[in-house]
Simulated scan of single mutants.
Amino acid sequence: MPDARPRSRRERPAKPALTREGIVSTAVRLVRAEGLQRVTMRRLAKELDTGPASLYVYVANTDELHAAVLDELLGDVDLSPATRDGDWRQRLEAVLVSYMGVLSEHPGLARTAVVVRPSGPNYLNLLQALLRLLHEGGVPDDRAAWGVDPLLLVATAVTAEHSAHGAASRPGADAEWNALTDALRGASPADHPHLAGRAGQLLSGTPEQRRGWFFRMLLDGMARTPLPEDPRPADARRTRS
């Protein structure tokens, strides 16, 4: 028979000390096993055998936790195209496609990446790779500095859209798509003259073709569009508002 007598706390094995690294590592493990949406402060505290209040000493809130998890997972992005030979545009797209692949592996991660702002080493490495390729392509540094944001935003949003509309995550996705297709094809020339008859164009192209076109459009526009003049006096530009 097992010993049912209560044990003193002094007789129990000591729990590992909480650290931010340990908390994030446990969260990443849960994401890989259960998905990001299941990783709440309460769920994480249970896994670490502590109370949620203890976690807030190391992580301010769920958004900060998810940002740290995102940065950790960004370590899986293949940045090697940035240092290879070949067309810089193709190599930049390869980095972004790898980024999208990492997001698509974890349900909910792409939607979270739209709103959270990681600041860890893996995110910095991703920015470094993109800026290196843009510099190689002759994009002025100031435009490249602004341009990496829409590049990542488009890659993230496209992945989030596909994740949300995927059959596995959205059972009604096919019905929604069919309804949109019917609406576009049935648009009245009288009510929607610029829309009627263009359903084929609006719905054309594979996801890969559209993705590549999005990136090329952004790169072409980035190289040709100067940044706006800062209207603030020179001495006021030292501090970001």
Rank of each mutant, 00 (worst) to 15 (best):
G120A: 07
V31M: 03
P150M: 06
M222I: 07
R42V: 13
L126A: 02
R240G: 09
P2S: 02
V102S: 08
W88R: 04
Q128G: 12
G35F: 08
D49W: 00
E72F: 00
A173D: 11
A27F: 01
A190Y: 08
R216Q: 12
A175L: 08
L127G: 07
G51D: 15
R111D: 13
S54I: 02
A68D: 04
K15Q: 14
S163G: 13
S188C: 10
S169C: 01
G22T: 00
A113Y: 01
L203I: 12
M222H: 05
R237D: 15
V158M: 08
D182W: 02
R117L: 12
R240K: 11
V115R: 12
V77K: 00
D141I: 02
R132N: 03
A236M: 15
Q128E: 14
S188E: 11
T50F: 01
A157W: 12
S188L: 04
A199E: 10
R238T: 15
T62V: 04
P16Q: 12
Y123L: 06
A196E: 11
V115Q: 08
A173T: 10
V28L: 03
L134I: 01
F215V: 15
P118N: 14
T26P: 01
P2K: 02
M222Q: 05
G172E: 07
P2D: 04
E11W: 04
L96P: 13
T40H: 03
Y99V: 03
A94G: 05
R143F: 06
T83L: 09
A157Y: 12
T83C: 04
R42H: 12
L153M: 12
A167F: 06
W146S: 12
R238I: 13
P52W: 03
D149H: 11
A190S: 10
A190F: 08
G35M: 10
T19S: 15
L131T: 07
H66M: 05
D49T: 02
L218I: 13
L109V: 11
H135W: 07
V28S: 02
L30E: 12
L36N: 02
G166W: 08
R111G: 15
D149K: 11
E208Y: 02
V95I: 14
L195H: 05
P81K: 03
L195Y: 04
S241P: 14
D63E: 15
H135L: 09
